[in-house]
């Protein structure tokens, strides 16, 4: 078992005990809510784990490190930023993909840029965003966030 898992389990147990001591009913409600959230993501999550397993087998790590690795430069950064901006992948699903990419040789810069554009820039959802904010504001927001994502990627890569 990974250290991560041990920490999460420990924190979870401690919190449940404390919460239970304060309010039994609230705790049960919280447990139920958490379990329901888990149940809701389980099938999509398993599906993505399957796809990642297959893709990691099919795409050799040499290709990933060539196009997304530390030496991929502007190309890797560009691929990450554009793919992250135009795809609509739920956050929780993108983390196993990101972890898989790093395992196969992608750089932290690329992964951080990909994750950030995924979260902050939405080309697919732009029409919806325009309905709320108007064209000018929505496009400006997305462009600013795109630039921010590239900066975030570069700095994360520099630090890690």
């Amino acid at each position: 078992m990974s250290t991560n898992a041990i920490i999460y389990i420990a924190v979870c147990v401690v919190l449940v005990i404390i919460s239970f001591a304060f309010n039994r009913q609230k705790t049960l409600m919280g447990l139920k809510r958490g379990w329901n959230m888990f149940k809701n993501i389980l099938v999509p999550f398993l599906t993505i784990l399957i796809l990642v397993s297959v893709l990691l087998y099919l795409i050799p790590s040499s290709i990933i490190s060539r196009y997304l690795g530390p030496d991929s430069g502007a190309i890797g950064l560009g691929i990450a930023a554009v793919v992250g901006s135009i795809t609509l992948i739920p956050g929780f699903i993108s983390y196993p993909i990101a972890a898989g990419l790093i395992k196969q040789g992608a750089s932290y810069t690329v992964v951080a840029t990909f994750m950030t554009t995924l979260m902050m820039v939405g080309v697919v959802t732009l029409p919806l965003e325009i309905k709320y904010f108007g064209k000018r504001v929505a496009i400006t927001r997305n462009m600013l966030n795109f630039v921010a994502a590239v900066i975030i990627g570069l700095v994360v890569g520099l630090v890690l």
């Binding site: 078992m1 990974s2 991560n4 898992a5 999460y8 389990i9 924190v11 979870c12 919190l15 449940v16 919460s19 609230k26 705790t27 409600m29 919280g30 447990l31 139920k32 809510r33 958490g34 379990w35 329901n36 959230m37 888990f38 993501i41 999550f45 398993l46 784990l49 399957i50 990642v52 397993s53 297959v54 990691l56 087998y57 196993p96 898989g100």
Partner: peptide, 28 residues
């Protein structure tokens, strides 16, 4: 591929459910 999948499944199942319990408590 199955071995890949099993690894990531174990990785996931050992922390995600606990994370969601924490989130659920937070919510309440």
């Amino acid at each position: 591929i199955t071995a890949n999948f099993t690894d990531s499944l174990i990785e996931m199942i050992t922390f995600i459910p606990f994370l969601f319990i924490i989130v659920g408590l937070f919510d309440v």
